[in-house]
């Protein structure tokens, strides 16, 4: 549904986006992850027809963004990372304005306003002024605005940025609800665990290039395959480290001290429980047994920390993704 072919955007001597090849399938929620300045917003802006690429092509459906921008605009609902609202407009008028701009009929506007305000929990604010809404409410209203013309594709640039935890959860639930509406969603974010919860696939971008792209299951499996675990005991940490090094699911003992051992664990959660029982049975007085990191964020940091490592991880991920798809 969203495709880019060797997409490049250059500002002077800086490559904001380099040979980006994306393929977001219809009906999926695709998470686009990257550090600040990695090229996420530039890519989304090109897809939203706000910017022309230096080279390469981008498609939404079958429409090319540079040659058929009008068709693309009708197919997308775009929510930038930061957006303002008009003063002196009520919530109802705000939605009606954008609905009319997309050519939605008056009767449909009325109907959709009601439905969407209900979806984003703002039905009681319908006659209030938009500039009087809280940031979280404005973000939710922005999402409702994106849906006024019922587009098949939604492009959301960090929709939860700057929101408090409650608003963030509300926003996440609303986006998860979009799956039922059969929308293709391209969403960029820094909050990786939330993306894992919402997305079907994740792409990691670094310095304008895509360094990893795979389904959430593949990424999560990879992260779980190398979970870092910290075991704290009252005493005998060094001896325990020797024993752990021989354990079949311990791939590496990272550090060991008298009271603490850090290791990489490749087993499942059940294997993890068995390891705790084994340690206790062997007489080690285990004080704590906890995962350190081991989240998508770690993978993200790992992939974006070093170019060589990133390329290796990317090829490994793409290989697993291809295997899974095959």
């Amino acid at each position: 549904m969203i495709t880019t072919e060797n997409l490049c955007k250059r500002y002077g001597k800086t490559d904001a986006v380099r040979d980006l090849n994306l393929d977001v399938r219809a009906g999926t929620v695709f998470g686009f992850v990257g550090e600040n300045g990695a090229g996420k917003t530039t890519t989304l802006s090109i897809l939203a027809t706000l910017m022309l690429p230096t080279s390469g092509r981008a498609f939404v459906g079958s429409a090319e963004v540079t040659t058929e921008p009008a068709a693309v605009r009708r197919m997308i609902g775009y929510m930038p990372d930061v957006f303002g609202v008009y003063d002196d407009l009520s919530v109802r008028e705000y939605l009606a304005f954008y609905g009319t701009a997309y050519g939605v009929g008056a009767a449909q506007i009325e109907e959709r306003t009601k439905e969407l305000l209900n979806m984003v929990n703002l039905e009681d604010k319908a006659d209030g002024y938009v500039n009087a809404l809280s940031r979280g409410m404005q973000q939710r209203l922005g999402l409702a605005r994106c849906l006024m013309h019922d587009p098949p594709v939604l492009i959301l640039d960090e929709p939860a940025s700057g929101l408090d935890p409650r608003s963030r959860i509300e926003m996440r639930e609303i986006i998860k609800g979009l799956r039922q509406r059969d929308k293709t969603v391209l969403i960029s974010s820094h909050i990786l665990p939330e993306l894992a919860d919402m997305c079907d696939e994740i792409g990691i971008i670094k310095r304008g290039a895509l360094v990893a792209c795979a389904s959430v299951e593949v990424v999560t499996a990879r992260v779980n395959g190398h979970r870092q675990i910290c075991v704290e005991v009252l005493a005998g940490g060094l001896a325990m480290a020797d024993a752990l090094a021989r354990h079949p699911y311990v791939s590496e003992v990272l550090t060991c001290e008298e009271t603490r051992v850090d290791l990489l664990f490749a087993g499942t959660e059940r294997d993890q429980v068995e390891l705790i029982l084994d340690l206790t049975a062997a007489g080690y007085q285990v004080k704590t047994f906890r995962e350190v990191g081991g989240s998508l964020e770690d993978l993200f940091l790992h992939l974006t920390s070093d170019a060589h490592a990133a390329e290796q991880s990317a090829s490994a991920l793409e290989g697993s993704a291809a295997g899974q798809m095959a």
Binding site: I76, Y78, F83, Y86, Y98, Y102, R145
Partner: peptide, 14 residues
């Protein structure tokens, strides 16, 4: 400045 232009430019309004 109000950051409403970006959204306006993604509508079908030329």
């Amino acid at each position: 400045e109000r950051q409403t232009l970006t959204v306006l430019l993604t509508t079908p309004l030329s």
